[in-house]
């Protein structure tokens, strides 16, 4: 495995569409639930342990070679909000495009054939990690980091929050990210033996509800 390849995949500037999404932060800001660095940290912590944990387990499973079709169905079952399913597939399609150009691989081509309009982003992330020569731990790290870095950078734009404070929030969550990665990889190894029912199904109802409300707005900065 190459540590440098992990940096390429995890780079916030990796051209896979993430910049247009707030990870629920825009809805939370509008609702008054995120107003500064403190509440951003609470929001990110909640997202990390719910959506982030599920995404990390999906990505780690895909990186271990678990069938992406069954993982995609499992991701659907764990994403009640139709708006979030649409966003996850859009981002998955964009990531697949970028990954196929960056790390050409038969597995990525096969995934594109199976899902011409996109599979759930964490599933694509795991297959992309394989194509990049990375393992399940790396894939899980990318997923958990994205689960909090997206809302943090969006909040900088939404609230004109001090970017140093937003980045400090991410640094304070680093240890918890390590723990979530450990849990996710453990779950993924169980998925290899026992199937996708071993995936975590932790959910955050406010993220799901917020996403539905957000999708109906006529004016918004972010796509989700």
């Amino acid at each position: 495995m190459s540590r440098a390849a992990l940096l390429v995949l995890a780079d916030g500037r990796f051209p896979a569409g993430g910049h247009a999404h707030s990870g629920g932060a825009e809805a939370a800001v509008k609702a008054g639930r995120v107003t500064g660095a403190g509440s951003l940290e609470d929001f990110c912590r909640g997202r990390l342990h719910t959506a982030g944990r599920v995404a990390a387990a999906l990505a780690a499973s895909a990186a271990l070679g678990v069938d992406p079709v069954s993982l995609d169905a499992a991701a659907d079952a764990r994403t009640p909000s139709p708006a979030l399913r649409v966003a996850a597939r859009k981002l998955g399609r964009q990531l697949l495009r970028a990954a196929r150009a960056v790390w050409p691989s038969g597995e990525l081509d096969a995934l594109a054939r199976a899902f011409p309009k996109g599979a759930h982003q964490p599933v694509v992330l795991g297959v992309a990690a394989r194509a990049a020569g990375l393992g399940p731990v790396d894939a899980a790290y990318c997923a958990v980091y994205e689960s909090v870095s997206g809302p943090a950078s969006a909040t900088v734009r939404l609230l004109s929050l001090d970017p140093f404070e937003a980045t400090a929030v991410l640094a304070r969550l680093a240890h918890e990210m390590d723990l979530v990665v450990d849990q996710a990889v453990e779950a993924a190894r169980e998925v290899v033996d026992n199937g996708v029912d071993a995936l975590p199904a932790s959910s955050s109802p406010l993220l799901e509800i917020g996403a539905e409300v957000h999708a109906a707005w006529a004016v918004r900065l972010f796509a989700s």
């Binding site: 896979a16 910049h19 970028a98 972010f222």
Partner: peptide, 20 residues
């Protein structure tokens, strides 16, 4: 195409949504 407040990103740095 929704640009996350940054059209120049969507037309130059990360063109994935526009290509789709």
């Amino acid at each position: 195409v929704e640009t996350g407040a940054c059209p120049h990103t969507a037309i130059r740095d990360d063109i994935s949504a526009n290509l789709e």
